[in-house]
Design a protein around this nucleic acid. Structure first.
Lengths: 134, 134
DNA sequence: GAACCAATTGCATGAGCATACAAGCTCAGC
DNA sequence: GCTGAGCTTGTATGCTCATGCAATTGGTTC
């Protein structure tokens, strides 16, 4: 196996391990999946805390159907609500609720600290990949 | 969102995109999943081209049940065969067949060229992977 | 109405968790 | 020293979940 090949395999596994820890922490402490968390983040950053399904999909690099189902989950737990957009009735806005904003704020602490801890545990694994090289 | 946070998100997406391309290429040209491919690689590198389920699992960082099902797939397509080990009758070796070795050899070309192409398409995203930083 | 776009729904896949099952090992008690 | 209960180790199976692709439904635009 070539050097590049091995390096890639190693990277995949390091990335996967960190992601798994992030997912576990969010799930355990806030009952939130990783994609769900990132969706909330995207909404919070969006204008009016709302996005169309499509925009959410392209931001998260998920396809329409996955987003449709994800939003279904988020709605079931009252973190977002759907809202038809007035100007184009084909479209649906997904809007962050107050509950969603609150949970997001809490989750972000978990996410941030877990991420830092995980990176610290893997010194060298991501050198050059996260900090723009000096 | 913090800088680290953003950088991580970006890395995840780049990695996911490359992995998706690898998976698509392998599936399209050889009818092989990415994990399946990596399993064949692991077997080829192992002594006698055989590994216990467990060892396969720990190498691929998959859990035991996933590997059990994966090996089932590989066997269905005649790429591997199961073989009980004589010394510990609880154990089962998964052994690469000639067909498996042949398919692997072909797939590795696809994998390698796709990987290089993908990395080349994302200049800067993976600096530090190719040349270990000086 | 024809072509198009947005969102949802049906179906298949690959993965994890919990559990069941099977083989071998240990050791107390006779 | 033999036996059998209980533990350990290795594999398989049932269920569930998130995701992708393909087909569908409903609204829009020309």
């Amino acid at each position: 196996m070539s050097h590049l090949n091995q390096a890639w395999f190693q990277l995949i596994q390091d990335v996967a391990a960190v992601e798994a820890e992030l997912a576990k922490a969010l799930q355990a402490r806030h009952g939130l999946g990783l994609s769900d968390f990132r969706a909330l983040q995207a909404l919070a950053e969006a204008k009016n805390s709302e996005l169309r399904m499509q925009d959410l999909a392209s931001h998260l690099k998920l396809n329409q159907s996955s987003v449709s189902r994800m939003v279904e989950r988020l709605e079931r737990t009252k973190l977002t609500v759907r809202d038809v957009c007035a100007d184009d009735k084909r479209g649906v806005y997904t809007v962050l609720t107050d509950a969603g904003r609150t949970l997001l704020a809490q989750s972000e602490v978990t996410y941030q600290t877990t991420l830092q801890a995980q990176l610290a545990e893997r010194p060298g694994a991501f050198t050059g990949l996260l900090q723009p090289l000096p």
